[in-house]
Write a protein that binds this DNA or RNA. Structure first.
Lengths: 141, 141
DNA sequence: TTAGATGCAAATAGTTTGCATTTGT
DNA sequence: ACAAATGCAAACTATTTGCATCTAA
């Protein structure tokens, strides 16, 4: 059905979940996105690929992926439909322009020192993070 | 009607918005919360204080406050109803335990150096941020 | 005085649920 | 074989909208 399994699909199976058509299709849509995608967009693209997949399964899959920290719902420029962000290695960070709503990705969030300090001070074990900056992008300054 | 105006109320008026009963009541509820509150909780507490305030006005007020960066909707342990976090000085940070859903606040997010570096490198002007860590709290480790 | 904000109730839309059926392992 | 997952459609519920009325400045 699917020729190649992505690392996330393997992770899914190793966590004891079945690799169903619905799940692999949602995963494909997420992986082909730019890392930010709304539930409405996921529903639409999944329907384009395979219209026999039910909406409920898409939502169930998004919930499953969220519980596995593959994605994370956020409220980027949409107060109605959640935007899901892909969380490679359990983290994600970006800048949202509060004027034009553009989302700017960047590397090197520089949080490893902070993570280590918090783990030591608060006796917690941190596995990921979401860092969202707000401000004006270069075009809106 | 209200004897004292909080700094946020003054900020609201200075931004050109009327200080109505609905808005001041929502603000009061938010300020008396622990900094994390769902829309359902806001609706309920507002109704307790003044049942004549309409639900629609509460939602309109939450939208207004979000646009003013007084609060920010997030998806803490609730995939249905958004949780709003108060954003003092335009930022907020916390740890969410992925096991028990406890939210741990902490000071000193240590992002000022990263903020300055991003502003210089990407030619943006950053005004706030939301930083959310995921992991296990001391009791769940 | 009057633009802005409100409350109400109806409309909308995104998401969830129950269940018979199908499917991956 | 069989527990897990699915698709369907109905049910749900949070949120939004239109509009006449009210009110803060």
């Amino acid at each position: 059905m699917f020729t190649e399994l992505s690392p996330r699909a393997i992770r899914l199976r190793e966590a004891g979940h079945k690799l169903t058509n619905a799940r692999l299709t949602v995963l494909k849509v997420l992986e082909e996105s730019d890392g930010h995608i709304t539930s409405a967009e996921v529903l639409e693209k999944v329907a384009q690929i395979d219209s026999s997949i039910g909406r409920a399964s898409v939502f169930r899959t998004l919930d499953l992926f969220t519980s596995l920290s593959i994605i994370r719902p956020t409220y980027i420029n949409s107060s109605v439909t959640p935007t899901y962000v892909m969380m490679p290695d359990g983290h994600h960070h970006h800048i949202v322009c509060t004027n034009c709503n553009r989302v700017i990705e960047f590397e090197n969030c520089g949080l490893s020192a902070i993570t280590a300090e918090l783990e030591a001070r608060l006796h917690v074990k941190l596995t990921g993070h979401l860092l969202e900056f707000y401000g004006l992008c270069d075009k809106c300054i």
